[in-house]
């Protein structure tokens, strides 16, 4: 009898150990196990330590926070470029965009993906965090079929999927905001905190806009977005040569456009083409180009002025 009880106690202890390990592993997966402490309302220091431990980099920005950053970046872009007024065209571009998004690894964001056509002849495409994607009239005019448009949108979706916009935020700002939030985690923002948070928010937006519009992402991010474009477009069913065909329209860069939009913020088309071709060659299956898609593309863009 005693042996039986001892055995049961041992198994129960093992179960409890597993239970504890489960909780530990879950915390560890977030990289915070060593620093997690729990809070009582009176223990602000503990809360501060915990929140700082929980959030330390761009990956710890929540979906909701990313949405508010993306909204503000979108508002800045829309203060520089007017929106092209054509509901039918927007409906078509959003349909192509959604088709591509559904075949990406991050099809769901806080409020979903939204695609907007900018009324400018400048050739440009921009993606703000959380899925606000802008494509210029000038770029649309360079696309000859839905394969090219789908590939360009897949490139922008790739930037959102990998959170390249958020990675532009200087780490010092994130440390500052997480520290501030850690100290005030259990309180409502006071006017002073709100002012300080908004200062950091403005700084973060400035970091993103500088990369997005002024200087462009690092080359490695552009190459990564091209790689994702090939993968996402082919998974959707688009012929991924659409990206290569589009890039070919971008070389040689016309001198008049050299310091504007895409030409200013993206690496040279030549390097990108050879890399994209290698990605395409590695695919198991290359979807064919379909005439029905080109027909609807031409119809949707027929009124573009």
């Amino acid at each position: 009898m005693r042996n039986k009880h001892s055995w049961m106690v041992l198994v129960l202890c093992f179960c409890c150990f597993l239970l504890v390990m489960k909780c530990s592993v879950m915390e560890e997966s977030a990289g915070v196990f060593q620093k997690v402490s729990q809070i009582v309302s009176s223990d602000k220091e503990s809360v501060s330590k915990t929140t700082k431990a929980l959030r330390s980099g761009f990956g710890d920005i929540t979906e909701e926070e990313e949405y508010y950053i993306g909204r503000a970046v979108a508002a800045i872009i829309l203060s520089r470029y007017p929106v092209y007024q054509d509901d039918g065209l927007h409906h078509y571009v959003n349909s192509v965009g959604k088709a591509v998004v559904f075949h990406s690894e991050r099809p769901e964001t806080y409020m979903g993906y939204h695609f907007c056509v900018l009324d400018t002849d400048e050739v440009n495409a921009l993606s703000a965090p959380s899925g606000f994607i802008f494509i210029s009239k000038g770029l649309l005019k360079r696309c000859e079929d839905e394969e090219m448009l789908g590939s360009v949108l897949a490139h922008e979706v790739g930037h959102v999927q990998k959170k390249h916009g958020l990675q532009a935020i200087k780490n010092a700002r994130l440390v500052e905001v997480f520290t501030l939030l850690g100290k005030k985690a259990v309180e409502k923002h006071t006017p002073q905190d709100l002012s300080q948070l908004t200062d950091i928010f403005e700084g973060a937006l400035s970091d993103i806009v500088e990369k997005l519009i002024e200087r462009g992402y690092d080359r490695k991010y552009e190459y990564e977005a091209d790689r994702l474009s090939v993968q996402i477009a082919s998974r959707t069913g688009y012929n991924p040569h659409g990206l290569v065909a589009f890039l070919k329209t971008m070389e040689p860069d016309p001198p008049s456009a050299a310091n504007k939009g895409w030409f200013k913020t993206h690496p040279s088309a030549e390097n990108r083409i050879s890399r994209a071709q290698k990605e395409i060659a590695a695919l198991d299956h290359i979807p064919p180009k379909i005439k029905a898609r080109t027909t609807r593309f031409k119809k949707a863009l027929s009124r573009l002025q």
């Binding site: 239970l19 809070i39 809360v47 920005i61």
Partner: peptide
């Protein structure tokens, strides 16, 4: 995510790490 353990030794509390993260959200 939830924490049954406290490495800091404070076992009197009940809030999960999710609640802490939520309370700490900033840009809203």
């Amino acid at each position: 995510r939830f924490a049954l353990l406290s490495m800091a030794g404070d076992l009197q509390t009940k809030a999960s790490s999710d609640e802490v993260a939520l309370a700490g959200k900033g840009f809203n």
